[in-house]
Write a protein that binds this DNA or RNA. Structure first.
Lengths: 229, 229
DNA sequence: TTACTAAGATACCGACGGTCCGTTATGTTG
DNA sequence: CAACATAACGGACCGTCGGTATCTTAGTAA
């Protein structure tokens, strides 16, 4: 199946380098598809068609559909973090810096729908059908990224201790995960929301929720910092 | 298929009352199963076996598998709220009442794993495969419950305005949804967590996260209340 | 007793994730 | 250049999923 759509420079991957290239192609295709369909809608058949490979051959490179998505998640997190790291903390009072951090997190997450989709599907959908080995490896990777995020937070709000910085980041991530409109309801339902003013509340703005949560939690933690119980 | 396990007092539901009884039996069975398997693992076949009905007959009472779970979700929320309503606000400073509210929410949610499972699966899993009509009806019901929860919060922390009470409850629910260990990883993975101290962090305590988030967010909102930007 | 209606049971559908096995491209050796 | 060994590949296939169509039969009313 020589594909004239995909840029297959070789038909059969025989060296390690070529195999890595195949993995990358699969991940790229998955990422592209996730901009069109929700995580649950990404099927192996469709993915394999996209990379011009038979389904069995996708499973040759990843132990399961979930393993593909988990690998993609790690790549997306790494990319996001490297974007965050390029932002310098800046000056101002602690609340001001908290607000700026809130804005930075909210807008950068909003710009990465694929990442948000994957994170929010992580516990419910992804961590099934995975060998214990893969799961552990993934967890270790995520743990590393979490540490980086906490240090990042600490650099922006040094008045928070390590523990509170971790709490802040944890709360923000949890909120983001839950507030992400995972897979949007069908259009008919959205239309009905728009028609009924009472239901408009249902359409929470993701960016706004994440920003507000970060601001408020940072404020709460800073308050407690000053006057510990 | 006359079942000697289920308490089928009639074989064929012919009156409205009997049909409601069937619906209740189905919901009860689903609730019981959710204490054993995660939402994603509750299959129509298993559910129908449990209520001693053919699969097609379960779908006679609910438009789809998701509709069953959505109906169960509403029932569980209603039950939870009626438990919350029975708690009286009590006295003390605002932060003290905030902490008590945090504890109340955290412990009551922890005691309701089925509710947490369903809420956390709501956007990702449940709101698919539902007619627009059912979706709207469900959303309206949830909206009503949310309003009750916000009023409940306002009664415990009257110094928060309506808007901040809503923000608090929203954040708490979002955090709870995301922190809920949806469907637990396989036992082998859990064992490995226990073995590796660095991975122990992964086992966040749900009750603790919800309690802390509520406390901190309440504190943050109260701070801003006193000194609006 | 008979006839009608709707609840229940059965067979089936397409799509899913995943596996098996025969085929063949491709680098290596004579 | 030809023969070979190997492993990437393709496609047929499996069991299970949610859901539908259709037939059977229980329960009621005439």
């Amino acid at each position: 199946m020589v594909c004239n759509v995909c840029d297959m420079t070789f038909q059969r991957a025989r060296t390690d380098e070529q195999r890595n290239e195949r993995r990358r192609q699969i991940l790229d295709a998955a990422a592209a598809m996730l901009t069109e369909v929700p995580v649950a809608g990404l099927t192996l058949t469709a993915l394999s068609r996209r990379v011009c490979l038979a389904k069995a051959n996708v499973l040759r490179y990843f132990e399961s559909r979930e393993a593909v998505l988990l690998a993609l998640l790690e790549a997306e997190i790494a990319d996001w973090i490297s974007e965050l790291e390029s932002a310098t903390p800046g000056a101002g009072t602690a609340p001001e810096r908290g607000d700026r951090l809130a804005d930075l997190l909210a807008t950068s997450l909003t710009r990465r729908p694929v990442l948000c989709d994957l994170i929010s599907a992580q516990s419910t959908v992804l961590e099934r059908n995975i060998s214990a080995d893969t799961a552990l490896q993934h967890k270790r990777a995520v743990l590393g990224y979490l540490g980086t995020l906490v240090r990042f937070t600490g650099r922006h709000l040094p008045e928070l201790g390590d523990e509170d910085a971790a709490t802040l980041m944890q709360t923000v991530m949890l909120t983001a995960v839950a507030a992400w409109p995972g897979s949007r309801p069908p259009q008919a339902v959205l239309d009905a929301y728009a028609a009924d003013p009472a239901l408009a509340v249902m359409c929470v703005d993701f960016t706004d929720v994440v920003r507000r949560t970060t601001e408020v939690v940072a404020a709460g933690l800073l308050t407690r910092e000053r006057q510990p119980r």
